[in-house]
Design a protein around this nucleic acid. Structure first.
Length: 633
DNA sequence: ATAGGGTTAG
């Protein structure tokens, strides 16, 4: 009997004689059907009904139920089943035993799993597989590998590809890489490389260990790729910030044909669009979502909100958010929209949304507080920010981490309350990370506090000695104070440590492509037009610009961004290619250079257009191999 | 027994 016929029953009716089998078999079929449809909770309910109706489970009943417990992470129900199995007297058969091992492993109880494993003197491949995978998924890599070795030694139990899958899935940290690569070579020897699922799992392993290049090499070696292969590589690039490569791969996949994207693919693409500010491509993805009927996937909707928000299109982000069914609005959805308003300085709206979220009964988590606090600090809502921090701890019982403290230090610092910021750091229960001291250093830059800047610098450099941004920041503090010795000191320090500032770059999106500019860049095909436009703008700006006394103190030899700023080039290019009345989003590294804000504001006034300057920090952070090539236009 | 997934600041 199919599940369709049973829909109007909560549980199957007792055997009506339609089946020649024993009634338990009918129940088992029903349970298996539920499990196939991933209705695990229902399966367990049906089991209770089964007991109440005095039908007895047999060996085929338990594996299904144990799987439900494993996937729902219900170790209590699982161990009850375990004792029930023991009570039935008979030794659990191999399938039930491997299900038990799996259930305990998935509930993070590998020791109990091992107990079940050890109860049998001769284990079959399936028990070994379950145990190896159990150790592996509980990050007990050594135990997993040892068992794997034992398995290989005992001739009668051969390693199969499922063993490999279970073992490899646990290699998730950079420290696992060496063993993992070894295993990869070993897998080749066994002839597993022809098994696509094994190859895919190694691909994922390289991604998780942070070795995208290795992953790519393997990806290229796989002759016939399936959707999982593409997804593993695409999301691998996405997670490691290689946004540009994600898009390249996505287009390649489309060109190849044969494989259609699924929600996982599009998720990686959208995330990369968000990081690149590639709204045009993002819009196409949205159409695709519509076409393929993935509208109801809330992962995708959240990614869409995030994409539009980060691309500066708050209107569309809000529309997508508002169109969501209230039941589907998770903390993540709220975080995306709140963060969106926060980035663009709309702190008031961000805060209102946060309150609305709490009212709607969604429990805030630590991440959403990061968004709220940073929204407050960007909008100068100092008191509100402090209030929310307090509520986070007292009302919602959430432990503040360094990421919250760095927002709070930023909040107090921007408001000029440097002393309080310093006291806050002293009062921290967790160890301050680089970001906390970095926020203080940034505040010292704004408020020209050389002494405190030196203290903050000492700390931050201990934690992040190779982060060039902080050296630049301190140098600028000295430079503002006309302390040339200080500037020199920092420069020598940078030279000794062989740190070089990568050239910053800005970009705008045009016709679905990124147009990238370095400062003083002359490589763009339409460079002549761009410079002509820029000259025009600069002379117009000079006409209306009254020199600001604050700018006078600047030393003439800045560490970075000398000459024509990259964002000016990007702006000029944007103006050349868009119709009057449309907004232009320029992506730049907000942290490095703020001087261009004045220029942007003035141009905005002159041409009567809106410019959105978007932070491309993420893009810059991971730009190894992303930013260096010139083939963006 | 089995490979791929959304949010955060400086």
């Amino acid at each position: 009997m199919s599940i369709e016929h049973r829909r109007h029953f909560t549980v199957p009716p007792p055997d009506t004689g339609e089946s020649k089998h024993n009634p338990t078999t009918t129940w088992n079929c029903y349970l298996r059907e539920l499990s196939k449809q991933k209705k695990y909770q229902e399966a367990l309910t049906v089991y209770r009904h089964m007991l109440r109706s005095s039908f007895f489970p047999n060996t085929f009943t338990f594996p299904v139920l144990l799987k439900s417990c494993a996937l729902l992470s219900l170790p209590l129900t699982g161990s009850q089943l375990h004792s029930h199995i023991i009570k039935t007297g008979s030794q659990p058969d191999p399938y039930t035993r491997s299900s038990l091992i799996n259930m305990y492993s998935k509930s993070s109880l590998p020791h109990l799993a091992r107990k079940v494993f050890d109860e049998e003197s001769i284990n079959l491949t399936i028990s070994y597989n379950a145990m190896v995978s159990g150790y592996s998924s509980n990050s007990m890599i050594l135990e997993a590998v040892n068992l794997f070795r034992k398995m290989r030694r005992e001739v009668s139990f051969s390693v199969n590809s499922v063993t490999m899958l279970g073992l490899v899935s646990g290699f998730t940290l950079p420290s696992h890489l060496k063993l993992g690569a070894c295993l990869h070579a070993c897998g080749f020897k066994f002839g597993f490389e022809s098994d696509l699922s094994v190859a895919n799992s190694f691909l994922t392993m390289y991604v998780k260990c942070g070795e995208v290049e290795q992953a790519r090499q393997l990806f290229d070696e796989i002759p016939v790729k399936d959707l999982i292969t593409w997804n593993a590589m695409i999301s691998g690039y996405a997670q490691n910030g290689h946004a540009r490569r994600v898009l390249e791969l996505y287009f390649e996949m489309k060109k190849m044909g044969g494989v259609n994207p699924d929600p996982v693919t599009l998720l990686g693409v959208l995330c990369s669009c968000a990081n690149l500010g590639a709204q045009g491509i993002g819009r196409e993805v949205e159409k695709k979502i519509e076409q393929l009927g993935f509208r109801s996937n809330s992962f995708l909707t959240n990614a869409l909100i995030n994409m539009y928000a980060r691309c500066g299109n708050l209107v569309r982000a809000r529309e997508v958010f508002d169109c969501m069914d209230d039941r589907n609005k998770s903390v993540v959805s709220w975080t995306a929209i709140i963060g969106g308003y926060g980035i663009h300085g709309e702190g008031e709206i961000a805060v209102e949304l946060f309150d609305a979220m709490v009212r709607s009964g969604v429990r805030p988590d630590r991440t959403v507080f990061v968004s709220v606090l940073s929204a407050c600090s960007h909008a100068g809502l100092t008191e509100k920010g402090l209030k929310y921090f307090d509520e986070m701890v007292r009302k919602h019982g959430l432990q503040p981490g360094p990421e919250h403290y760095s927002c709070l230090v930023d909040l107090l610092g921007r408001a000029g309350r440097l002393k309080e910021a310093m006291d806050l750091i002293d009062s921290m229960k967790v160890k301050p990370d680089g970001a906390v001291w970095g926020a203080l250093l940034g505040a010292c830059k704004i408020h020209r506090n050389v002494e405190l800047a030196e203290v903050a610098f000492q700390h931050v450099i201990e934690l992040e000695p190779t982060n060039i941004g902080y050296y630049v920041l301190l140098s600028n503090v000295y430079s503002d104070a006309k302390n040339l010795d200080g500037v020199l000191k920092v420069r020598i320090m940078m030279r000794d440590r062989k740190l070089r500032k990568d050239p910053g770059c800005s970009y705008v999106e045009y016709k679905g492509k990124m147009h990238l500019f370095y400062s003083g860049d002359k490589s763009h095909p339409r460079i002549k037009e761009i410079y002509r436009m820029l000259d025009e703008l600069e002379s117009l700006v000079k006409e209306i610009h009254q020199p600001d006394h604050k700018c006078q103190g600047k030393t003439e030899e800045p560490l970075i961004g000398a000459g024509v700023h990259s964002e000016k080039l990007a702006l000029a290019f944007g103006l050349l290619n868009t119709k009057p009345g449309t907004d232009i989003t320029v992506m730049k590294n907000l942290r490095v250079c703020v001087d261009c804000h004045v220029f942007f504001k003035l141009v905005s006034k002159i041409v009567n257009r809106q410019f959105i300057v978007r932070d491309a920090t993420r893009f810059h952070r991971f730009k190894n191999g992303v930013c260096s090539c010139k083939d963006y236009w």
